[in-house]
Simulated scan of single mutants.
Amino acid sequence: MEQSKVYFSDLRAPVGTNLLRKLEKLIRRAGIGDIDMEKKLVAIKLHFGEPGNLTYLRPNYAKVVADVVKSLGGVPFLTDCNTLYPGRRKNALEHMEAAYENGFSPFSTGCHVIIGDGLRGTDDVEVPVEGAEYIQTAKIGRAIMDADVFISLTHFKGHEATGFGGAIKNIGMGCGSRRGKMEQHNAGKPLVRQSRCVGCRRCSRECGQDAISYGEDGKAGIDQEKCVGCGRCIGACNFDAIRTPDDAANAELNRKMAEYAKAVVQDRSQFHISLVIDISPYCDCHDGNDTPILPDVGMFASFDPVALDQACADACLKLPVMPGSLLDDRMHEEGFVDHHDHFINTTPEAEWESCLEHAEKIGLGSRSYTLITV
């Protein structure tokens, strides 16, 4: 089988050029112009960033992609779906305000913002998934499915539940409506290690289901009936007191996510871009961010989201650890076990291989790729 092509550009920008021009050159060289976009509605899926977080992709990058789409005759819009958890992106009005606050407006990006699953996260389409093992019909935001062409623009970084957040997560989890996100998360429900809990109550502030309460000793407990397994509490805890007891839970989440991603892109034109910069340990869904765990790498583009994620991961695993980062702290803890994987070393409860393995198995793409430097 022919290897997928992944195109790469580093972040060097000598006098006379800049990263925005390099991004345009990258995506044009990678073949975005081969897509028929004439008078087509083009969804550009990205993460607008939870206000307070500063590692989300700058809107300048989104404008480059939107401008290229318009130059090819397309009609672009930026999109994401509402969140399960509390914050400022849980309904369309707050979500759009958050996007504008972080710089994603028609004036700065040259195209409109549309929240994919509507006002309350209930406007979705049930999409059958070819070859799926876990999902019969994926619940995808209606506006995303109504688009003629789909482009993902991803900030590649760590993630507390899926090992890393790459193109497949941006597509699969990001395009799921609120019930779609619940369907993906509902297998892995965390528990509290009472011996480590200090009763700080940060986890309850992150829980969107009111599933966390506190006993007379001040320690947290999770109501398994209310919990949807979103994993927000795991990332919120600074004391490693919350864990997922089922070793298969994260793998199941990853596989469902791959199936949701396939539902989004199957049978239509697609293109994928990942920027491996500001590699924070956790998702941009948090209203803050920790120092990057790894140095910046560069920009990648491909028609194959599986090959793209594999190439980004491979590049990251070759990098040195950033001193003073969470990953550096983990590696100096007593009893540290080296998994020889920066993402698993950062969050040992998580892993990412199952996502790419399953994505390849169901025909979303190939893990085998040729890297072409632009």
Rank of each mutant, 00 (worst) to 15 (best):
P348S: 09
L371G: 03
V192C: 12
D304E: 01
I144R: 03
L326W: 15
L57G: 00
F343N: 05
Q136I: 05
G363P: 04
F104S: 03
P348I: 02
R193G: 08
G218F: 12
V65T: 07
S274T: 02
V374L: 09
A261L: 04
G288E: 10
A359D: 05
A307V: 02
S325T: 12
C81E: 07
S108K: 14
G365A: 08
D314K: 08
I273H: 02
F77P: 00
V65D: 01
I212N: 09
D146L: 06
T244V: 13
L46Q: 09
S366N: 14
V127H: 00
I293R: 07
R330Y: 13
A62V: 05
R196H: 12
L93F: 14
D36L: 02
N53Q: 12
R179I: 14
A307C: 05
L327E: 06
F343G: 04
V68P: 03
A167I: 01
I279V: 15
K181P: 09
P292A: 13
L319Y: 11
R202I: 13
T346I: 11
N53K: 06
E225D: 12
G215T: 07
T17Y: 10
G365T: 00
S105K: 07
F150H: 14
G103L: 07
I35E: 02
H185F: 10
